[in-house]
Amino acid sequence: MSDSMWQGSGVDLDAYLTRVGYEGDVAADLSTLRGLHSAHVDAIAFDNLDALLGRTVVPLDLDSVQEKIVRQGRGGWCLEQVVLMAAVLDRIGFTFTAFAGRTRIRSGSKLGPALHVALLVELDGEQWLHDVSFGAYGLHEPIRFAENERLDGDWSFDLVREPTGENVLRFLGPDGPVELYGFTTDVRYPSDFELLNHFCLTHPRSPFNHRMVLQRTQPKVRHLLAGTVLAEIRPGEPATFRELDEAEALSAPGEIFGITLEPGDIQTLRKTLAGP
C-alpha cells in the first residue's frame, strides 16, 4: 500500500474497529462511511482534558493519536479525531479532502477563526460531509454535500448556502435551526492542523484551554459538559442544563463520556476545578 499524507498505512484498523465497536463489512462505500461515522461518535468523546492537565503539547502524529484514543480509551479534540478518522478512511480506500469551518453555535459570530476541521468524501460522483468531532450538536452520520440538503431522523440537519458562498451546517432542533459552523471547501492539509492545534492549546481566546469541555453523541441522548454545567439533549426536546458538584464533575469523564483517565489525571482535574 502506498503511503499518503493521511498515513493510512500506519493505522491499526482492527484496533480502531474494536474501539468503536464496528462489526460490519469494511469497504470504500456509503454503507461503511455511515457505519463508521455513527460508531465513532457513539464511542469516542470530544475531550479537551490534555489542555487542563498541564500538557504543553497535544501531538497530532498518528502514533500518538492512536495511543491516546484507541489504546488508552481517551477522547480527543477535533484535530486529533480528524487525524485518526482520515487515516482510517485512507486505509480503507476512500478519497477525500479536509476543510476548516468557523464555529457559530458558541460564539454567535460568523467571523471567528476557522478552528473546526472536517472531511469531504467523494463517492460515485457525489460528496459527503463527514464530521465525527463537532460534539454534542454534531452529525451522527454523513450528510450529502449539496445546497439545501437535509438529513432527517431523530436528529435532523441541513446545509444552506449563504450569498457570500459560505456553506452553513445547521442542527434542526425543536426551537428552530441552530447554525453550527460555516465553511468553504478550500482544501486544508495536515500542516494546517498544526497551526490550529497550537491556537487551541495556547491562545488566550481559545475556547478549549481554560475549562473542561467534554461532548458525546449517542443515538438517543447527547451530552455536553462545559466547566461544571452539564447539558443533556434528547431528540425533539429542548436541552436541559444542570450544575454538577465537584464529585459529579470528576466522575463525569468516565461515567457519562466513556473516557478512561489515570488517577493522577483526576487529581490534577480536581485542582483545576478548585481554581486558583
Rank of each mutant, 00 (worst) to 15 (best):
H198Q: 10
T202W: 00
D158P: 09
L214D: 13
F193Y: 14
P219G: 11
G153P: 08
F145D: 00
D186I: 01
L195W: 03
Y189H: 08
P142S: 15
P219I: 13
L169T: 04
E149L: 07
T164V: 01
I143M: 11
S191W: 14
F193S: 08
D192R: 05
E194P: 02
R188W: 00
E147Y: 07
G153D: 06
H203Y: 14
V221Y: 08
F171K: 07
F199V: 10
N197Y: 01
T184D: 01
C200M: 13
R205G: 09
L180E: 09
N167R: 03
K220Y: 11
N148I: 11
P219K: 11
H210L: 05
H198W: 12
F193M: 14
Q218K: 13
F193W: 14
D154K: 15
L195H: 07
V213N: 09
E194V: 05
E166N: 04
G176P: 03
G173W: 04
P163R: 03
L159E: 05
F208Y: 10
R205L: 12
P204Y: 05
F208V: 09
R216A: 13
E179P: 08
F183N: 02
Q215C: 07
A146T: 15
L201C: 13
R211P: 02
F199K: 07
L180M: 13
L196F: 03
L180Q: 12
D154W: 13
L180A: 08
D192G: 05
V160H: 09
G176L: 02
L195N: 04
T164W: 02
N209I: 09
T185V: 03
V187L: 00
P204K: 02
R144K: 15
E147I: 14
L196V: 04
F193C: 07
R170L: 14
E194K: 03
E166R: 01
F183S: 01
L195E: 08
D152E: 11
G153M: 03
E194D: 09
D154Q: 13
R144S: 12
S206P: 06
R211W: 07
M212R: 10
L169S: 10
V221M: 09
R211L: 08
Y181W: 14
N209W: 11
R170V: 08
T164G: 00
S156D: 06
M212C: 14
G153I: 00
